[in-house]
Design a protein around this nucleic acid. Structure first.
Lengths: 149, 149
DNA sequence: TATTGTTATACTCTATAACTATA
DNA sequence: TATAGTTATAGAGTATAACAATA
């Protein structure tokens, strides 16, 4: 096995990107783009957001989010609700249809990933369960540090 | 640790997607989009392609690739060369500038990933080196089966 | 004056349909 | 006729700048 860090880092990233791409292509319900998919997921998991909050959380500009939400509203996935506490503000929330689409896509992605994992040996599966959460923790720690600096 | 497969598959995918997103944002040289970045990477790694071949390999339509290559040519990253064997065909190849941009971006991505991995414990790092190539092998085996069916 | 959101504008990315040129 | 590529057209996704309404 090649353990040279500088060489293997790029190879490992290419490997994991191919895997993510494969799984993403398996979630087809609703024909959502990545932008719509991640915004919908956030609204379902975290509840209604101000448009501004959602834009910041998704790393997008406010006009971008205005337009994305307009398209998603047209598709019936989300709805705009006036904020009772602030006349300027708009709360965005997932509709019942949006929730159902999200759940379906979650299931499709989980199936695709699970189906890959099941082809691995038991030690490899164990490595997956250790490696992926560990990398995610490192990413989140990194982002928490950036927010404070 | 939660080892229930159905529940953890989605959580593991979210984890790995966050990681990929983080690393992708670390590669900034040239200001390339994902489409341009992956096409350039293919041209550098695999050599010149017919426009049609490149479109198929990247999972894009021919007109899409025509336009992407036009933009990349304008940016100096690739060049169109007439195919000596077929008057209809156009060979696309990376320029010296494209090669240099690709190398720079590879280094940036590898640094970002390596920097994450270094925050992990040694057993976690070992799990990464086992898990990621194993998942990639499963993806490639899956795609090879699809090509034959 | 600062904040929330939209509109205007422009560029990239993507697709399908129609077209040109060559095999 | 089939293949390689482009052009035409349209819609999604993105950004910045300018604007409206509210706090």
């Amino acid at each position: 096995m090649n353990l040279d860090p500088a060489v293997s880092a790029e190879a490992l990233m290419i490997a994991v990107e191919r895997m993510v791409r494969h799984v993403r292509r398996s979630a087809i319900t609703g024909g959502l783009s990545m932008a719509a998919s991640t915004a919908l997921g956030r609204l379902v998991r975290e509840g209604p957001h101000l448009l501004t909050e959602l834009a910041r959380a998704e790393g997008a500009s406010q006009p971008n989010m205005t337009q994305l939400i307009t398209r998603m509203e047209r598709a019936g996935l989300v709805s705009r609700v006036a904020d009772p506490h602030d006349g300027r503000a708009v709360l965005v929330e997932a509709t019942d249809i949006g929730l159902e689409v999200f759940r379906q896509r979650c299931a499709e992605r989980a199936d695709a990933f699970q189906s890959l994992v099941e082809e691995l040996s038991e030690p490899e599966q164990q490595a997956v369960r250790i490696a992926l959460p560990a990398l995610d923790r490192a990413v989140q720690a990194r982002q928490a540090r950036q927010d404070c600096s």
